[in-house]
Amino acid sequence: MHINTKRFELEIHRDSIWVRVSLFGRTFQTFRDFSGQGLSATNWIKDAEYPTETESRSTLI
């Protein structure tokens, strides 16, 4: 399942969950893996530090 709005993104798979929420100029991201590997990551970042869609595409080229 994948839900994506301007301020909220949620992606759920059978073995993992990923959430991104943007509020008040900050972005909260978290990832959890439930497949037994125990992978997880969580961070808060300022939106100015978060690359825009155009910037992230240009770095991939």
Results as ranks from 00 to 15, higher is better:
residue 3 I to T: 06
residue 3 I to C: 07
residue 3 I to H: 05
residue 4 N to Q: 12
residue 4 N to K: 14
residue 4 N to E: 15
residue 4 N to S: 15
residue 4 N to T: 12
residue 5 T to N: 06
residue 5 T to G: 05
residue 5 T to M: 03
residue 5 T to P: 00
residue 5 T to W: 03
residue 5 T to K: 04
residue 5 T to R: 00
residue 6 K to I: 07
residue 6 K to L: 06
residue 6 K to Y: 05
residue 6 K to R: 06
residue 7 R to T: 13
residue 7 R to F: 13
residue 7 R to H: 14
residue 7 R to P: 07
residue 7 R to A: 15
residue 7 R to E: 14
residue 7 R to D: 14
residue 8 F to L: 12
residue 8 F to E: 12
residue 8 F to T: 11
residue 8 F to Q: 10
residue 8 F to C: 11
residue 8 F to D: 15
residue 8 F to R: 08
residue 9 E to C: 02
residue 9 E to M: 04
residue 9 E to G: 00
residue 10 L to V: 09
residue 10 L to W: 06
residue 10 L to D: 01
residue 11 E to A: 08
residue 11 E to I: 10
residue 12 I to C: 06
residue 12 I to V: 12
residue 12 I to S: 00
residue 12 I to H: 03
residue 13 H to Y: 15
residue 13 H to K: 13
residue 13 H to V: 08
residue 13 H to A: 07
residue 13 H to G: 14
residue 13 H to Q: 15
residue 13 H to T: 13
residue 13 H to R: 14
residue 14 R to V: 01
residue 14 R to A: 03
residue 14 R to K: 13
residue 14 R to N: 09
residue 14 R to L: 09
residue 14 R to F: 09
residue 15 D to G: 01
residue 15 D to P: 04
residue 16 S to C: 02
residue 17 I to W: 02
residue 17 I to L: 05
residue 17 I to C: 04
residue 17 I to D: 03
residue 18 W to S: 01
residue 18 W to V: 06
residue 18 W to P: 01
residue 18 W to M: 08
residue 19 V to Q: 02
residue 19 V to S: 00
residue 19 V to C: 05
residue 20 R to A: 07
residue 20 R to F: 00
residue 20 R to L: 09
residue 20 R to M: 06
residue 21 V to H: 13
residue 21 V to A: 12
residue 21 V to M: 13
residue 21 V to K: 13
residue 22 S to K: 07
residue 22 S to D: 15
residue 22 S to R: 04
residue 22 S to Q: 13
residue 22 S to H: 01
residue 22 S to P: 02
residue 22 S to V: 14
residue 23 L to G: 03
residue 23 L to I: 13
residue 23 L to D: 14
residue 24 F to C: 09
residue 24 F to T: 08
residue 24 F to M: 14
residue 24 F to S: 15
residue 24 F to V: 12
residue 25 G to F: 02
residue 25 G to D: 07
residue 25 G to M: 05
residue 25 G to R: 00
residue 25 G to V: 06
residue 25 G to S: 09
residue 25 G to K: 03
residue 26 R to Q: 14
residue 26 R to A: 11
residue 26 R to H: 10
residue 27 T to I: 06
residue 27 T to R: 14
residue 27 T to G: 05
residue 27 T to A: 10
residue 28 F to S: 09
residue 28 F to P: 01
residue 28 F to M: 08
residue 28 F to A: 04
residue 28 F to H: 10
residue 28 F to V: 04
residue 28 F to C: 09
residue 30 T to K: 05
residue 30 T to V: 15
residue 30 T to D: 04
residue 30 T to I: 12
residue 30 T to H: 05
residue 31 F to R: 05
residue 31 F to M: 14
residue 31 F to W: 11
residue 31 F to P: 00
residue 31 F to L: 15
residue 31 F to Q: 06
residue 32 R to G: 03
residue 32 R to A: 12
residue 32 R to F: 15
residue 32 R to Y: 09
residue 33 D to L: 02
residue 33 D to Y: 02
residue 33 D to R: 00
residue 34 F to G: 04
residue 34 F to S: 08
residue 34 F to N: 10
residue 34 F to W: 11
residue 34 F to V: 10
residue 35 S to A: 10
residue 35 S to H: 02
residue 35 S to R: 10
residue 36 G to V: 09
residue 36 G to Q: 06
residue 36 G to E: 07
residue 36 G to N: 09
residue 36 G to S: 03
residue 37 Q to R: 15
residue 37 Q to M: 13
residue 38 G to W: 07
residue 38 G to L: 10
residue 38 G to M: 11
